[in-house]
Nucleic acid binder design. Structure first.
Lengths: 191, 191
DNA sequence: ACGAAGGCAGACATGTCTGTCTATATTGCT
DNA sequence: AGCAATATAGACAGACATGTCTGCCTTCGT
């Protein structure tokens, strides 16, 4: 019965574990308003978390930003590979186009962080490079069937992907960008 | 004659007029390190300008940022249109490719500012939208010879241009991006 | 030569940000 | 029930940012 009372019969449902709340809010605010523009105090206020609690879970704002970036990368690859990984480049591009033109998507977290921290030696910026390198490698792999310079070809595809995401940032989620159609034209030129 | 004596100067070679110095330094620092990351005091220190002088020429940091953005736009169009404007899309793309892959170029000031100020209602972000709209309109005009949906086609070209510039930001000026080659493949698909 | 305009140096007010610390309350486990 | 871990609220320190203001010096037109 104590268990019953403890769980509070769920009165405490409104407050899940603080770390998750912090990450949730940080993700939303960093993405929507920018990392530099988002103060830790605002995150704490929105997440309804005390300062000491925040610093118990994250050593610093920098640590939180890194966690946010890792979480974003995770979410991207989860989306791309689930429920089943793309069978070829075309399928991958379809999925990426759908993601880039999703109403909630207003850019790529890694392009955004690279713009906010232009120094390529900065840890945040490094995460962006790593992420793009990873995607590039994946595209190169998918281009195996093509008898071309796959590195150059993948770079071109990445250019289109990142161009589309950049335009989503500039114009907002309202304007759709013909990512897939552009990429298909490129693919045709590879044959 | 007074005009002669007046202009005659030039002795002040070591310190040009303060406004120009401020803009010069602001341009360099905003572009290389980001707008939010660059404090006005640093700009004054590097430009060797006193605080009062700074505020005599610019009402606020915001005013300076706007001046920086306008200057960037001006520089872009000057580059594109001089000494002679491109005769067709292809010539324009050649010029833009050369610009985007220039060793000093690590991105587009407008994509960068849009990333730093994601709110599309913010005056800085608005400048980015205006600039992209202007380029889009120019591309649409250049596509006149093509019997296609020129708005969509121009958007695709802009996607490639901004994708290339985004990758320059991520990877730094070392990595060359095949902008022209991608754009040519697209153009072929328009015929 | 002289007076006004503009530049220089830097103190100061004000606000914001990150991060530390204390004191109190709640939770969870045994 | 009671103890250890964790949450909350918020004061506080220290750094840094923008923008105002004062006082002094240089430059330039007349």
């Amino acid at each position: 019965m104590s268990a019953f009372v403890k769980m509070g019969g769920m009165k405490k449902r409104k407050k899940a574990d603080p770390r998750a709340r912090i990450l949730e809010v940080a993700n939303r605010l960093f993405y929507a308003e920018g990392v530099r523009a988002t103060g830790t105090e605002k995150i704490m206020a929105v997440a309804e978390v005390a300062k000491a609690t925040f610093y118990r879970h994250f050593e610093s704002k920098d640590a939180l930003v890194l966690a946010y970036l890792d979480r974003s990368a995770q979410a991207f690859w989860d989306y791309l590979m689930s429920p089943t990984p793309p069978g070829d480049v075309h399928e991958a591009l379809i999925k990426i186009d759908r993601l880039a033109n999703h109403p909630d998507v207003t850019g790529c977290p890694f392009l955004l962080i690279a713009a906010e921290y232009p120094d390529i030696a900065h840890p945040f910026h490094r995460r962006a490079i790593e992420q793009k390198d990873k995607l590039l490698a994946y595209l190169i792999d998918l281009l195996k069937p093509f008898a071309i310079d796959r590195t150059v070809a993948a770079t071109k595809l990445l250019t289109i992907i990142d161009g589309a995401l950049s335009l989503r940032t500039v114009y907002g989620a309202s304007k759709e960008i013909p990512l897939l159609s552009s990429a298909e034209a490129l693919l045709k030129s590879f044959e």
